[in-house]
């Protein structure tokens, strides 16, 4: 394997990982854009959808239908979370929203342990999803899951971009993100917009969870937490509240991680998470609006 092949292989790895981060980060950013809310429970939407898919396919439901149903379950969990937990505290200081979502994570993860036990379960992917493509005598390899996650990430993100810039609902969401009071004043149904935002964000999380599970082969109650933390970094680095920023941040983060592990000295790779979060702090300090300069925060 020469260095060009090595680099190409690592680029493929980075795109595949970045796609997953991007899809989780987009939902975080959407919700943040409208509600100015740091949503810790976002990762759990990955979990609920994946469990639904596994249960349905165990019951004999064809895999593609189970996937769609799983995404619907994720979206539904998001809507319920908004209706039951977040709406009553809307308008409170942002820390209250953050803490409520933290408590909700705690509830959802322990409920999942209570119902499904803490043991991981295998995620039954059909064989065509695990097919391996090899080039240059096997020096460069990728799987159909890699392709599916990258393409579905790019397609769905493009779709989302079109939705927020070309539909009335999407434009309304952007208006609400800009100034909720003014949006309400001109007659936009804020509650409806927020519910739609949560449904879309959670649906994306569900899809990401599915791809995550297909790639890792297992699901477990706390499967959403670690990607959620990474998605925070991606969303903030890209510009919290900006959809394009979240996508950009996701891919940058994927690249950074692969760069550290693949190209850095071996001693550096266990410090990967520390480097990622140090980057987050640097961004918060020197470019709090992220790369896209969204939502400028007042700083001392």
């Amino acid at each position: 394997m020469n260095s060009l092949e090595f680099t190409i292989q690592q680029i493929i790895n980075a795109v595949s990982l970045g796609s997953l981060y991007a899809m989780v980060a987009v939902g975080l950013s959407m919700v943040f854009g409208i509600l100015k809310m740091t949503n810790f429970a976002h990762g759990d939407m990955m979990m609920t959808g994946s469990y639904a898919t596994v249960l349905l396919s165990a019951l004999g439901v064809p895999f593609p239908i189970a996937i769609v149903a799983g995404i619907a379950v994720s979206a539904l969990t998001g809507i319920l979370a908004e209706r039951i937990a977040y709406r009553p505290v809307r308008g409170a200081p942002d820390v209250t929203l953050l803490l409520t979502s933290l408590a909700l994570t705690y509830v959802l993860e322990n409920l999942a342990i209570l119902i499904f036990s803490g043991s991981p379960r295998s995620f039954p992917t059909p064989d065509w999803m695990n097919e391996v493509f090899a080039f240059s005598d096997g020096a460069i390899t990728f799987t159909s899951v890699d392709i599916i996650s990258s393409t579905s990430a790019i397609l769905s993100l493009l779709g989302l971009g079109w939705f927020v810039s070309h539909t009335t609902t999407g434009l309304g969401m952007r208006a609400a993100a800009e100034d909720m009071a003014a949006a309400a004043l001109v007659g936009l149904d804020i509650n409806r917009l927020i519910v739609i935002a949560f449904a879309i964000a959670s649906g994306f999380a569900g899809l990401a969870g599915m791809l995550w599970a297909a790639q890792s082969g297992i699901i477990e109650p706390d499967m959403g937490f670690s990607p959620l933390l990474k998605a925070f970094v991606a969303a903030i680095v890209g510009g919290f509240g900006s959809i394009a920023g979240a996508v950009l941040g996701g891919y940058l983060l994927g690249a950074l991680e692969i760069l550290i592990v693949g190209f850095g000295p071996t001693e550096l790779s266990p410090y990967r998470d520390a480097i990622v979060f140090a980057l987050l702090i640097v961004f918060l300090l020197f470019r709090p609006g992220g790369i896209m300069q969204a939502n400028r925060e007042v700083k001392l």
Partner: peptide
């Protein structure tokens, strides 16, 4: 969930 970078190094 992804060990791709580590594995590519072994390769």
């Amino acid at each position: 969930k992804s060990f791709a970078a580590q594995i590519t190094k072994i390769k």
